[in-house]
Write a protein that binds this DNA or RNA. Sequence first.
DNA 1: CAATCGCTGTCATATTATGCCAAATCTGAA
DNA 2: TTCAGATTTGGCATAATATGACAGCGATTG
Lengths: 160, 160
Amino acid sequence: MPNLKLDAIDRKILAALQRNARLTNVELADEVGLSPSPCLRRVRILEEAGVIGGYHASLNRSELGLGLTVFVGIKVERHHGAAPDAFRDAVRDMPEVIACHLVSGEADFLLQIVVADLAAYEKLLLGTLLNLPGVTDIRSNFAIRTLKETAPLPLGHLPQ
Amino acid sequence: MPNLKLDAIDRKILAALQRNARLTNVELADEVGLSPSPCLRRVRILEEAGVIGGYHASLNRSELGLGLTVFVGIKVERHHGAAPDAFRDAVRDMPEVIACHLVSGEADFLLQIVVADLAAYEKLLLGTLLNLPGVTDIRSNFAIRTLKETAPLPLGHLPQ
DNA sequence: CAATCGCTGTCATATTATGCCAAATCTGAA
DNA sequence: TTCAGATTTGGCATAATATGACAGCGATTG
């Protein structure tokens, strides 16, 4: 559903800000071949159009003592009644859940969870996850090693 | 493996920059209750210590015409020889793969893939994924709806 | 108590962000 | 091709920010 036409310069801007969101506007303008003024104007337009959703620092989990990443597949009762909404709300309110998707396949929901260690995960699993509304099955897959994470979107492979 | 002790102000800084990486240093300093000078110094220290890994713009995928997110579980032959390394390198070079983890459980690797649509995914699956070195099985789970994505890390739940 | 270490706030200066406006470029029609 | 209208750009002036030097404050240690 693209609402905005992006030209080559816009794509350069997006690629640059994906790579480093703290570039100054002067640096960014230089990189994409514009003067600062129109460059900043394009960035503002991209922000207001929602193409740029936000800017976030990416933190080192293990350095912060959050050493365990778990991918959790959850099955819930056939969707009807208030259970699905309740499940959604509960997941939204869990700070340990950093991503949650409704997916096709074996599981209904796929969650990415970040905690300190196995003990913390056990607590979360037994104390919260298993008690979420409508849950019938949970499979936990632990991330053993991360090869890639939050890589930039493939802007070089945009359609059109 | 925390190498650095973080105090309450450091955590506030991290939380703020996770939420909005384009805060000016003046705004950030005000938010965490410091003057700009020591605030900037702390940010630099956090960057150099690797606690802050980078700053990235988060882009709206559907707005960019990248409407399909797929979670792909891949099994590979029992790890030995050059196959694992070759697999890793191949995955690293695929821009459509925005995340890849070695995981426990059914699959060996869990990939997150972003493409324009089903046709693009079919092409990637048949043309590339199935031909990756050592692959014995692939299961594709399509994201139907995203409830949460790239949520901030749970800094309020740090150990210690 | 005195010395030291770490961290803070203040201040001056270099850089940057931002809005305005004229010039340049593009588009479509005659 | 030429021209008018619409869009976008670059330059400039001003306000805001980043950055580094420096002195002061507070905690710790001997």
